[in-house]
């Protein structure tokens, strides 16, 4: 995904994932690992579900109460996780965190998640933009 996405496109992507988060639902079958996340400075109170088979994330979804930023960022993350190996997934999450904190990061693996590049402008909201990503990180590291 090119960094040259302009601001309007980035806004549109965030709004689309917020208004219509296709991954926001309970798991549709068994075999999902779940982590509950709760924010102490935002409304966010959600469950993240990952299904990992033979080292590959085969499905991801989330549910609960979440703000604009956490909904969109978690929804995008679920899209990106599907089909990745655990190591690829963990690498992507690590790069996302680098982006959050204005460190050097590998933009290629972040694809659509690049739309959150400006989160550090509103540092109080980094927690919202990473809550789902931290949950996935916990699940993947637990299962390693």
């Amino acid at each position: 995904m090119p960094i040259s996405l302009d601001n309007n496109m980035m806004r549109q992507i965030i709004m689309d994932h917020y208004s219509n988060p296709i991954n926001k639902h309970q798991p549709k079958d068994d075999g999902f690992a779940k982590v509950h996340m709760h924010s102490d400075n935002c409304i966010d109170d959600l469950d993240i579900f990952l299904k990992v088979n033979n080292d590959v994330v085969v499905d991801a979804c989330f549910d609960g109460v979440a703000c604009t930023i956490s909904t969109a960022s978690t929804d995008i993350m679920c899209d990106l996780l599907k089909g990745k190996t655990k190591n690829e997934a963990l690498y992507m999450i690590e790069q996302y965190h680098h982006m959050m904190h204005e460190e050097n990061f590998d933009a290629d693996v972040l694809e659509e998640a690049i739309v959150f590049i400006n989160t550090s402008k509103q540092a109080a909201r980094i927690r919202c933009a990473t809550i789902g990503w931290n949950a996935a990180d916990n699940i993947l590291k637990e299962k390693k």
């Binding site: 400075n41 935002c42 409304i43 703000c67 604009t68 930023i69 402008k121 509103q122 109080a124 909201r125 919202c128």
Partner: peptide, 20 residues
């Protein structure tokens, strides 16, 4: 509008309020 989002918007304008 989520209260936290409103507070973030106000923050971007230099205005400190509390949400939550």
């Amino acid at each position: 509008v989520f209260p936290q989002d409103e507070a973030t918007l106000l923050n971007s304008k230099g205005i400190a309020v509390r949400s939550g």
